[in-house]
Simulated scan of single mutants.
Amino acid sequence: MRSLRPALPLPLVLLAACAGATRGAPPSPGRALVSTPDGSVGRIEVRHLDAQPRLTLVSRDGDPAPALVASVATDLGSVATTALATVVEARLLAAGFDVDARIDRSAFRVRLLVKDAARVAPFLRALSAAFAQPIVAGSPEVARAIERVQALRASPLDAPELSAIAACTGRLGLAGAEPVVDLETPAGVRELEGWRTAALHAGRTS
């Protein structure tokens, strides 16, 4: 496959970018915190930007297309992380961005292939809006979150003793008798909204 290497505009933040840019690309804004040595096969650089999440730049020769990944550390467990990831994914899809979510026990990632660099700024605005918009009962994203959480319950861990191992490895999963918040109730939606305010912000995102 032929490698595509468009130069993405990276003064915008919130995300870790995995782009097929050349090593000679100009540095991004912000202060470099750590980077791989010169001459490495792939170049990884973490940059600090004031009042924004850290930005991780990954440049590799041969990537078929550039991409953006928003990674959020929730530290809230399987149910909350699954529900929040689903809400963000649903809102971005509704905004016209073909994203997908990858969910772990206490973190999730939303990924977008960037075929057009002009879509980067609108995506970042849509991501910020997806984080900031309050969650209300009866919304389409809550309906999707209910389905995903029910799927967790449908495939429980084989034994309660595995919960500690799952917590250590980051694997999604619930023990058979583990309580699950009911997102079909007003109280459950209020709890989901509390998770949103606790986790969906710049301090927990890269």
Rank of each mutant, 00 (worst) to 15 (best):
V99D: 06
A126D: 07
A130S: 14
F131I: 03
G96P: 08
A90R: 15
S40H: 13
A65F: 06
S78G: 05
A199E: 07
A80K: 01
L8H: 00
R91H: 06
L15A: 15
A129V: 02
V13L: 03
M1F: 04
A94H: 06
A70R: 03
A166K: 05
R102D: 09
L57S: 09
R111E: 02
Q150N: 15
T169Y: 08
A67I: 01
G138Q: 10
R196P: 02
A187R: 10
P9C: 02
S163D: 11
E147A: 15
A151N: 11
L93T: 08
I146D: 10
V180W: 07
D182A: 14
A137H: 01
P186V: 00
R43C: 07
T169E: 13
P6G: 09
P53H: 10
T22M: 04
P6R: 03
P160D: 12
F108N: 10
D63C: 12
A107P: 04
P64K: 15
L84F: 03
F123R: 04
S163H: 06
R109A: 12
L4D: 15
A83T: 14
V142T: 03
L127H: 07
L93W: 01
A118C: 08
P9G: 10
L113N: 06
R204T: 09
A130T: 12
R153K: 12
A95P: 02
P26M: 03
G24V: 04
A70H: 03
S206Y: 02
C168Q: 13
L49H: 11
I146L: 14
D104E: 10
S163T: 10
R102C: 14
F131K: 08
L55T: 03
E89H: 08
P66V: 01
I135D: 08
S139R: 11
E45S: 15
S40N: 07
G138P: 05
L57I: 05
G176E: 09
A80Y: 00
A16L: 01
R144H: 14
I44L: 11
T81P: 09
S139C: 08
G62F: 02
P134K: 11
S155P: 02
I103K: 05
G24C: 07
L4N: 14
S128Y: 04
R5N: 08
D116L: 01
L76G: 15
I135C: 13
S28G: 15
L55V: 03
T169K: 09
V13S: 06
A126C: 13
P64V: 05
H48L: 14
S163W: 00
S40K: 06
T82K: 03
D104H: 14
R125C: 06
V79R: 08
L200G: 05
T56K: 07
L76R: 11
T36I: 05
A175T: 09
R2I: 04
R190C: 14
R153H: 10
P11E: 09
T56Y: 02
A83N: 12
G203T: 13
R144Y: 00
L68E: 00
A151E: 13
P186D: 13
V181T: 09
T82D: 07
D100E: 12
L152C: 13
L92N: 07
E193P: 04
A175G: 15
T56W: 01
A118I: 01
R23A: 15
G194P: 02
D38H: 12
F123D: 03
A143I: 00
A65N: 12
C18A: 11
P186E: 12
A19M: 03
S155C: 13
A17N: 02
